[in-house]
Simulated scan of single mutants.
Amino acid sequence: MLSSFAASLTQSVRPVTIKVYLSAIKNLHLELGYVDPTEGAHFLKRVVRGICRCHGVAAVRPRLPITFPILCSLVDTCLAAPAMCPHDKRCLHAAMLAVFFGFFRCGELLEAPTTRGCLTFESGMLHVHLPRSKTDPSGEGTTVLIGPAVPPYCAVRAMLTYLTATASARPGSAVFILANGQRLNHSTFTAHVRTLLSTSGVANWQDYAGHSFRIGAATTAALAGVPDHQIRSAGRWRSDACLRYIRTPPSSARTLASKLSSSSLTCQFEHFGKAWPSFPTVKSNNDEETDDDEADNDEAADDDEADDDETAGGDGDKTDEEESGCREGDGAYEGEVRNNS
């Protein structure tokens, strides 16, 4: 029955959505004390795998990363913009730096329930209390710490300057309010960022969005040699899905062969070859199916992480995979790959 249900959905929804529906059916049965209908359903797994192979993955609009060099260009252009009033300059200046250095999803900082009262300064650092976020749906709350940097690219100083200039605002009001009295929401923020990128002469400026700051922060951290676990903690990711945010430039392939054939690695492999003789391995069909199932489960978990990452901010116009941008192979950006050798 589930196989027929999955097959009937192919004309209306994407394969990743079918996986979500089946996962919901599984969870509902378990919560009600029934047996998992997907357990041991090998034919269902084959049907889902065939759907994925036949229909593929829908094209996703690219989301290029705003790395630190691009952020600096954005800030410089913003502060020098002749047509922008001083208030809006301070507002955008603080918003861009805070979103980047805090690894924020835009909705977490720009939308409710985060207010001015959630921001405090202690020991030279900016403390942002998030009453609720995607990884905290129960509303226990979490606090994001942002340290100082070199001006004018310091989020702490930029935020302090903006809040001081708007000290008359109520603590319960939105964090960022433009000169016209409107909240700086996600769509308005993205529009301003694209305008600044276009003015700065950045290529493909239309492929950048608000979430490009979060992607760029993860990419910049990786290039700076920050450990994966620290990147995951800074971005409040629940899994290793944060690794999908790190963009690898095509130029990294130029040095990959030399790294693989380095003398130190060659010596290690020669030693292993003497100690561990190789034997032919025969994999059974059951083993192949098990490996495929594990890969499918891992991919589905990553898709679920990326699909709804903007829902905390109420951004209903996001499509699947849009948070992390594009799938593997679309990582065009300015920078170098992390050195894992």
Rank of each mutant, 00 (worst) to 15 (best):
Y333L: 13
G325H: 04
V47N: 07
L130S: 00
D330K: 10
L44Q: 01
K318D: 11
A209Q: 04
R116I: 04
D302Q: 10
E336P: 03
A241R: 06
R244D: 13
E294S: 05
Q182V: 06
A257E: 14
S123W: 10
L256P: 00
V282D: 10
A59V: 09
H129Q: 08
S262R: 06
L9I: 04
D307F: 10
A301M: 12
T195E: 13
Q230R: 11
A24G: 08
S123R: 14
A306C: 14
G325T: 03
A224N: 11
A94D: 02
T10N: 06
S12G: 05
S341I: 05
T142S: 14
K259Y: 06
F5I: 06
I231Y: 04
T17H: 01
F103C: 15
A221K: 01
S23T: 07
A191D: 09
T161I: 11
D292A: 11
R247V: 06
P152N: 01
G335A: 02
E310H: 09
R157N: 11
K318H: 12
F5S: 02
C106A: 11
C154F: 04
D315M: 02
F213H: 14
T248M: 09
H129E: 06
R90G: 07
L223F: 05
P151V: 05
V13P: 03
S324H: 11
R170D: 15
A41E: 11
V226G: 03
